[in-house]
Write a protein that binds this DNA or RNA. Structure first.
Length: 288
DNA sequence: AATTTCGACAACCGCAGGCTA
DNA sequence: TTAGCCTGCGGTTGTCGAAAT
């Protein structure tokens, strides 16, 4: 039944740091023969290591496509943003960063990024501002009080904006005419809604008109993944808030209610558009 | 100069889901 | 069909060098 076990428990296999000789043996073998069967590799390569150890050494260190060296600011931003969307899914996060391993990203998170967020008053788990007053006080004491207050205020404002945009995307991502047939009859101007609500913010982030704005028709669903990718990849490095904490996933339990004052801060006209959309949805709900 | 502490990173451990004989 | 291995993943631990005492 089954296969041969991965590593025999009673075998006296070497553990701990790899020597350069071991690296060379593994590298040589895989370069010549590939790594289709990890179980065979240690023996065939002449290594007294278990298959798992060999696989890990290869994927985390010896693989030729690994990008070594310090993480750039852009990479750190991407990691923070992806972490806010995906949580501790290190392998998923690593798949967005060519040449970086999940282990490397996990280490970076635990040693640098977590502290960086905490110092900015952001909870690294929820990616929301820390609300515990004691913790906030002790954090703010680390910085110049005036600078700290200004910074905190600016960051909270920016987070609020992102919350709003994400909520709008979520609503727009619902195929309205499918759900509510009468909307199709009314020919609700989704294009106009997009142009007024999403495009300006998208433009701020990308510094160019979004490609989807050219293709959006009334029956189309706004592709939020494109917008999210824009948010992740187009960090404005000149911005005072380039070290901004990341997006917070919009789920029913942590969706924030809209705040007139915050929406007005972005642009008062957006609220009118969204309010119009909300009103239509409410009306439809009442009819149904 | 010796010792201790801390931070960074590599490596290991154990689990879950998929796969295979 | 199923027992048990294989692989990938995330959490944790170990190691080593630098900084502090």
């Amino acid at each position: 039944m089954g296969r041969y076990p991965c590593c025999k428990v009673d075998e006296d296999l070497k553990k701990g740091p790899w020597t350069s000789e071991e690296d060379e043996k593994l590298m040589d073998y895989i370069t010549k023969n590939g790594h289709t069967n990890w179980q065979l590799i240690p023996k065939k390569a002449g290594l007294n290591r278990c298959a798992k150890s060999c696989r890990l050494r290869w994927t985390n260190y010896l693989r030729p496509d690994i990008k070594r060296g310090e993480f750039s600011i852009e990479e750190e931003e991407i990691i923070i943003n992806l972490h806010s969307l995906l949580g501790n899914k290190w392998s998923k996060i690593a798949s967005h960063l060519p040449g970086r391993t999940d282990n490397e990203i996990k280490n970076l998170w635990n040693t640098h990024l977590k502290k960086k967020l905490l110092k900015s008053g952001i909870d690294p788990v929820t990616h929301q501002p820390i609300t515990d007053p004691n913790l906030l006080l002790s954090l703010s004491n680390l910085m110049n009080p005036f600078e700290s207050a200004l910074r905190l205020q600016a960051e909270l404002t920016e987070i609020a904006k992102i919350h709003i945009i994400q909520n709008i995307i979520q609503v727009l991502n619902t195929p309205l005419p499918t759900l509510i047939p009468s909307l199709q009859e009314n020919n609700y101007p989704m294009q106009q809604c997009y142009n007024n609500i999403i495009a300006p913010y998208d433009q701020i982030l990308t510094n160019e008109p979004s490609p989807i704005s050219n293709n959006l028709s009334d029956n189309m669903v706004v592709n939020s993944s494109i917008l999210e990718n824009n948010m992740i990849n187009n960090v404005d490095n000149n911005s005072e808030y380039s070290s901004l904490p990341s997006l917070v996933p919009v789920t029913p339990e942590n969706s924030v209610p809209f705040d007139q004052q915050i929406i007005d801060m972005i642009n008062p006209s957006y609220y009118d558009d969204f309010y119009a959309l909300e009103k239509i949805l409410d009306d439809e709900e009442n009819i149904i």
